[in-house]
Design a binder for these strands. Structure first.
Length: 288
DNA sequence: TTCCAGGTCCTAG
DNA sequence: CTAGGACATGGA
């Protein structure tokens, strides 16, 4: 089964813009423009073809269409929403520069695991940590491809986690896995965004930033604006907004689509800004 | 050797 | 309630 997309889809921007999907999916070494992930009893592949973007189900993949629609949010009217959030500069140029950047949805647990691991960590290592976690999921063989499903919370053990070099995040992830296995997040999908956030904040290792990311990438809520160091720097540089004003500003300017605005701003910062670029003083660490 | 990385937690004031 | 440091790990 093969799906051909007509909407803009930039593989690199989508998978390498710091979203959980880019940490969870695997990239083929010989072809950096091909990515895959286990689904149902087979694999879903995304790749570049002569006609544009192709998405294929390899092996037994029952509901490929629905999975693809949900994961890549293909029913979002991006043309309309980009017009809305891109009314003025500089967001206009940021959105137009990355029109093919898809905001992707993964499972709640997968989003939690990725974002807990991401704190005070760098993107290449986050990816490595998340891929290491897959060693503890069920194996899957499709043709010559050998991979694993991402492990369910109840499949993890404390001992297994300590083998993933997660550092101090290990205890956070273990605590969160136990909470999910115990059903602590039950019903969160149907809750309002503020209520869902309050519930997420109960989990160990989940603060405001991780909670917002989980709301955005794991629950598909667009009415959040996750703010990390990059967003702070970019908001200061491009919008002259100080950290304590970011939330109010984003809500007023980009409204219910601010999750999309955030992702484009983040990717812009990632690809256009240097590390220390900002007029805000950075906090320094001291020796013990 | 020192600094940094899509932050959170804990403590002191 | 707010500010500041600790927290593991590995790459530059």
């Amino acid at each position: 089964m093969l799906i051909s997309l007509s909407t803009p889809f930039d593989i690199k921007a989508t998978f390498e813009s710091g979203q959980p999907i880019g940490f969870l999916w695997e990239k083929i070494r010989s072809n950096p423009d091909m990515w895959w992930y286990p689904h149902d009893k087979g694999l879903v592949q995304v790749f570049e073809s002569h006609h544009g973007i192709g998405i294929a189900g390899i092996g037994q993949v029952k509901d490929l269409g629905r999975f693809v629609m949900e994961t890549f949010r293909l029913s979002d009217n991006t043309a309309h929403l980009y017009r809305e959030i891109g009314r003025d500069e500089p967001m206009k140029k940021m959105v137009q520069n990355d029109v093919g950047l898809r905001l992707c949805k993964v499972g709640l647990w997968e989003a939690l695991a990725c974002m807990i691991v991401s704190q005070n960590n760098n993107i290449p290592r986050i990816r490595k940590n998340v891929q290491d976690l897959k060693k503890f999921g069920e194996p899957l063989q499709v043709g010559s491809i050998q991979t694993n499903y991402f492990p369910r919370p109840e499949e993890l053990t404390k001992k297994a986690l300590t083998q993933c070099s997660l550092g101090y995040r290990c205890d956070y992830l273990w605590g969160t896995a136990k909470a999910l296995a115990a059903g602590d997040m039950k019903g969160i999908e149907k809750m309002s965004t503020p209520d869902a956030k309050e519930l997420l904040l109960q989990l160990p290792g989940v603060g405001p930033k991780v909670a917002d990311c989980v709301l955005l990438f794991g629950l598909g809520r667009l009415d959040v604006f996750p703010t990390d160091v990059w967003i702070e720097r970019a908001m200061q540089k491009y919008f002259h907004v100080k950290p304590d004003r970011i939330q109010a500003f984003a809500q007023k300017r980009w409204g219910k689509w601010r999750g999309y605005a955030q992702q484009h701003l983040y990717y812009w910062a990632l690809t256009h800004m240097k590390r220390g670029e900002s007029d805000m003083g950075k906090k320094k660490k001291k020796r013990k």
